[in-house]
Design a protein around this nucleic acid. Structure first.
Length: 682
DNA sequence: AGCACGCCGACT
DNA sequence: GTCGGCGTGCTC
């Protein structure tokens, strides 16, 4: 090696000492097992290296290393130190220890491996989510917080944490007691709205009970908006030094700074977005996930793991408790209750009824069709009446389906969707030119005429939040209208009267709650064909409905909250009116079980060039119990196959998929893409 | 992505 | 008999 480049290390090496092993290598545990940064499937396994004596001290399990692999230098993480490697392999020396910081704990590595297996993906791909990018300067910063935060004993002895909010649910007091006494209870809970402190206070209560047992806590929320809301409560109740916040949106440097606080054991309460599910919390006692039905919990990159599934695996590995709390109920959460894996914490119906808003279904509103102003804003008369009345008392939330970005176009006369004459793609209005253009190939259709009736004028088939805000401004003159969409996030609005137009998941929180919530685009959201559409729509509705004031005034909060839901009546709407997402999820799960569809069963998708995908499926040995569907011909000569299998068969199926992918990769076959439990395909 | 190793053909 | 082409497969 370039020992000449490191004269001090050479000088420090004692040539006279008797070495039982290889000269110049660490005497104890000279082998380092390393997980390498390689995207190649058949290299997704650990490789062993020798630890040079001068790296012995720094080369602890969990540190970042550089190793020589094949011709190149690769980054890696040191998984463990061993006395021996497999015989017959000449080991290379570890090149460098990048930093002595231990960024990967043994339990987190075990979780990453379990996640990779569950999703038939690479361990490194999972570790990329688990270990944030290194920011070297942060490592040498003085830890402003000191070594042990939140450990100051109260002058009156230890304060017994409250269990008041959890105790409002059947089984909640027992659940709280288990957390307090070191147990690992698992529960699913649909939150009662308008309780003191709302959901952040409820989650904090569970966290404090666990912290009081001397263990760590992890809270995962869907997005920056929810995290901001939770952190506001935490800052107020326990102070910003009492917890660590992990979110990719905070930027690389603050993220790594907070990550190090956790890794060094200086924070025992961790809150964050989906990647925080891997935070190296020491001695994890409880993992909490808020609103697991929210799609933000799913990692958009391979292997597409979901924070809920990460935490389920993690709780098993670390023997920690789990709390799935949400405004609604996902079918997956319901399945955990059904299988007996988790308890259901149910609120007294009376309590729920008092604190939930009044829900009105506004279907069959012929008045709306007569009033062009209301029609333009897609506002049923009942919604208009309720909004008008509510605006005297506070802000009104209007939930609409999408942003005003490139709405699809239809013929103004016969409503036929406008499609590209070249590629049949949907036409949309180009913001820059105002001319209709194809959303796929970009061809401008000017002039356009309808293929069905020859008419030459278009209308927007969907109006987004910005357009709706405009239209509502006309329907409610002199009322302030604000729009909050994904592009223009707005986390809070004051308690003053205003119309707040927002897309699902982007609704700002109103001080003291919304006087009314209008859910206008149910029909449009329902129109999307898909197995889980009803469930998704209900969860989006429940999320918005939770921002409304309760029916009755209580705990110093105003009452009179009303939710108006527009559209065709259906099961999701009936569930909203009864404010009972759990019953809906249970019925859905029953039906899925009858039909053999997820999440009553698990699924896998195999996609790739037709010949390769078919060959892959032919070579895949998973037994007759696994249902195969395919091939479906996609564009560009690709084939897609689907597999349906039971939870019990899951590990065998994902293992077989992973092994075969490695074989294909080694044989230089073109890549097949594999997705486990994909959403939105069925 | 490189690098070793191996089989085969050409040249001393 | 030896040298060197590049094709296949492994990389601790």
């Amino acid at each position: 090696m370039e020992r000449s480049a490191q004269p001090s290390l050479l000088a420090g090496f004692d040539l006279s000492s008797p070495l039982p092993g290889i000269p110049n290598m660490a005497e104890e545990l000279p082998v380092a097992r390393v997980v390498i940064d390689s995207p190649v499937p058949h290299l997704d396994r650990p490789f062993d290296y020798l630890v040079p004596a001068e790296l012995d001290e720094a080369a602890q399990p969990g540190v970042r290393v550089k190793v020589r692999f094949g011709g190149q230098e690769l980054a890696g993480l040191l998984a463990e130190r061993l006395e021996h490697s497999d015989p017959g392999i000449k080991l290379q020396p570890l090149r460098t220890v990048v930093s002595p910081e231990v960024v990967l704990s043994a339990p987190v590595l075990a979780v990453a491996r379990a996640v990779a297996e569950r999703y038939a993906g690479g361990v490194w791909d999972v570790l990329r989510s688990a270990v944030p990018a290194r920011m070297a300067r942060v490592e040498t910063e003085k830890d402003a917080v000191g070594e042990s935060p939140a450990e100051e004993p109260s002058p009156h002895g230890p304060v017994e944490p409250s269990a008041a909010l959890l105790s409002e649910y059947h089984g909640g007091a027992d659940y709280a007691q288990a957390l307090r006494t070191g147990g690992a209870p698992r529960a699913v809970l649909s939150a009662v709205p308008n309780r003191p402190g709302d959901w952040p206070a409820l989650l904090l209560e569970a966290a404090e009970l666990t912290l009081a047992s001397g263990r760590g806590v992890l809270i995962v929320v869907p997005d920056a908006r929810d995290l901001t809301r939770l952190c506001a409560t935490l800052d107020e109740r326990i102070g910003e030094h009492g917890y660590a916040r992990l979110s990719a949106e905070d930027g690389a440097t603050p993220r790594y700074r907070n990550f190090l606080r956790v890794a060094r054991g200086n924070a025992r309460l961790v809150v964050g977005t989906r990647n925080a599910a891997f935070a190296p919390v020491k001695d994890l006692g409880l993992a909490i996930i808020w609103d697991d039905a929210d799609n933000s919990h799913a990692e958009p990159r391979a292997p597409y793991h979901h924070a809920r599934e990460v935490l389920l695996l993690r709780c098993g590995i670390e023997d920690a408790g789990l709390l799935l709390a949400a405004p609604g109920r996902s079918a997956e959460a319901q399945r955990l209750i059904r299988s007996g894996w988790a308890a259901e914490l149910v609120a007294e119906r009376k309590l729920l009824r008092a604190h939930a808003p009044r829900v009105i279904a506004a279907s069959d509103e012929f008045e709306a069709d007569r009033d062009p102003m209301l029609h333009a804003a897609r506002l049923p008369a009942a919604a208009w009446r309720e909004a008008k009345a509510a605006l005297a008392h506070g802000p009104v939330l209007v939930q609409v389906a999408r942003t005003g970005f490139m709405p699809a176009l239809r013929c103004e006369r016969c409503r036929t969707p406008a499609r590209c004459t070249a590629c049949n793609g949907p036409l949309a209005l180009d913001d820059a030119r105002g001319a209709p253009a194809c959303g796929w190939c970009g061809l401008v259709a000017n002039p356009w005429n309808c293929v069905e009736c020859g008419f030459m004028r278009l209308r927007a088939a969907s109006i987004g939040a910005d357009r709706t805000a405009e239209e509502l401004g006309r329907a409610f003159p002199h009322v302030k209208v604000v729009a909050a969409t994904g592009a223009k996030p707005l986390y809070t609005v004051p308690a003053t009267p205003a119309l707040v137009v927002a897309t699902p998941g982007a609704e700002p929180v109103a001080q003291d709650g919304y006087a009314a919530v209008l859910l206008l685009d149910g029909d449009r959201m329902m129109a999307r064909e898909g197995l889980r559409t009803g469930e998704e729509v209900l969860n989006r509705w429940m999320g918005a409905a939770h921002l409304a004031r309760g029916r009755d005034a209580a705990d110093g909060r105003p009452g009179g909250g009303t939710v108006v839901v527009a559209g065709e009546p259906g099961e999701p709407m009936r569930a909203l009116v009864r404010f009972d997402a759990a019953a809906y999820a249970e019925a859905e799960l029953d039906e899925r079980r009858t039909l053999g569809l997820p999440p009553a069963v698990r699924t896998a998708m195999v996609k790739g060039p037709a010949a390769t995908a078919d060959k892959f499926m032919a070579a895949l040995e998973v037994g007759d119990e696994v249902r195969r569907h395919g091939p479906v011909l996609l564009g560009e000569g690709e084939h897609r196959w689907l597999l349906f299998f039971s939870y019990a068969q899951g590990p065998a199926v994902t293992a077989a998929l992973r092994a075969l992918r490695a074989t294909f990769s080694a044989a230089k076959e073109p890549v097949v893409s594999i997705r486990i439990d994909p959403d939105g395909i069925l």
